[in-house]
């Protein structure tokens, strides 16, 4: 008796907060499935944009969507998130696992609990229990980067590839696509790949020292955001304005850099499209439709010339949906 009163009191306080934040979309047709998107890291423009796409698609299909994620790219942080989402028993989950192996157990448990699991952006080594795996065609992205950079440097000169760490499937694929494509450009010489451990300062040091040993450096390909920023700093330190830089991803900061001339080209993934496809595939699975095991989304090359085109706009990553 007494205990219940106490609990009710506590609840009264907390539910006030809870009600105001859970706006739900009215179901249009079919069953109002409950879906959850687990981001690779919360608050990152890439995943925010993915959530925007997922939310738009969810509203369209009349299903409910929750978005969550760890506040760091860290499998040890993401595991409790995955476990709690499983405990919340949604009908389907779109997840970007932070590690391809470490999270097998909790994601398998999620699937075993009867929840439909779709991988978005990243995936596990074992995809046997997933509805679908949707990701960027990173190889194509690397090819696109090579073509764009070759154009920017008029098809001749030495180029540098700044990668994160060896052994990461997505960035390795980008580098492979890049170097393979550059073989079709005989006047372009690709230097050995440099690794930065995702540290912008390392990218800066690498850039300045390569510039010293290769004064004819014409272009740099940075496989992710951190590297691109480090490279830009390095070029600035060397007062070099001739080297063209092309980088992966197109967050608000990168667009700013593009407009400011710090980078000359961006290869944008399509997180919005990944989010849309993720919801589509999951709902299809729930409605017993036919799903596609692997979906590779397209990329766009963004330069100063086309950044304002409406066709390119949808590829820009957003800090918030509206």
């Amino acid at each position: 008796m007494r205990m219940r009163n106490l609990v009710m009191l506590g609840l009264a306080v907390i539910t006030v907060g809870a009600c105001s934040s859970s706006a739900t979309a009215a179901p249009a047709a079919g069953k109002a499935w409950n879906l959850t998107l687990i981001q690779g890291v919360a608050g990152d423009p890439f995943y925010v944009t993915m959530a925007c796409g997922a939310q738009a698609e969810a509203t369209k299909e009349g299903v409910k969507l929750n978005v969550t994620g760890g506040n760091k790219w860290d499998a040890t942080v993401q595991k409790p998130v995955i476990d709690s989402v499983t405990a919340a028993k949604p009908d389907g989950v779109m997840v970007a696992p932070d590690d391809s192996k470490a999270l097998l157990t909790p994601l398998k448990a999620m699937s075993d609990a009867g929840i439909k699991v779709t991988f978005v952006d990243t995936k596990l080594d074992d995809t046997s229990f997933a509805v679908s795996s949707i990701s960027t065609d990173n190889l194509a992205g690397g090819t696109l980067a090579a073509k764009t950079l070759a154009q920017l440097i008029n098809d001749k000169g030495t180029v540098l590839v700044v990668n994160v760490d060896p052994g990461i499937s997505t960035t390795d694929a980008r580098v492979k696509g890049f170097t393979d494509e550059m073989k079709n450009h005989p006047n372009v010489k690709v230097l050995d790949v440099q690794y930065t451990h995702d540290d912008p300062t390392a990218a800066t040091t690498i850039t300045t020292s390569i510039l010293a040993s290769n004064p004819d450096l014409a272009g740099v390909f940075a496989t992710n955001v951190q590297n691109a920023e480090g490279v830009a700093t390095g070029l600035k330190q060397a007062s070099n304005t001739t080297v063209k830089t092309i980088a992966f991803d197109a967050g608000p900061k990168q667009i700013e850099d593009l407009n400011a001339g710090i980078v000359q080209g961006l290869i944008a993934q399509d997180p919005y499209g990944i989010g849309v496809a993720g919801v589509q595939q999951t709902v299809l699975a729930l409605n017993h439709g036919t799903t596609t095991a692997t979906i590779q989304t397209q990329l766009a090359a963004i330069t100063k010339d086309n950044v304002n085109d409406p066709s390119v706009q949808k590829y820009l990553y957003k800090a918030s949906c509206s």
């Binding site: 969550t68 760890g70 919340a88």
Partner: peptide
């Protein structure tokens, strides 16, 4: 912290509320 973490996640709160 784990109870808060799990509870907030199950309730569908933005992850930063846990912190």
């Amino acid at each position: 912290p784990m109870v808060l973490f799990s509870g907030f996640t199950i309730l569908g709160y933005q992850s930063f509320w846990r912190d």
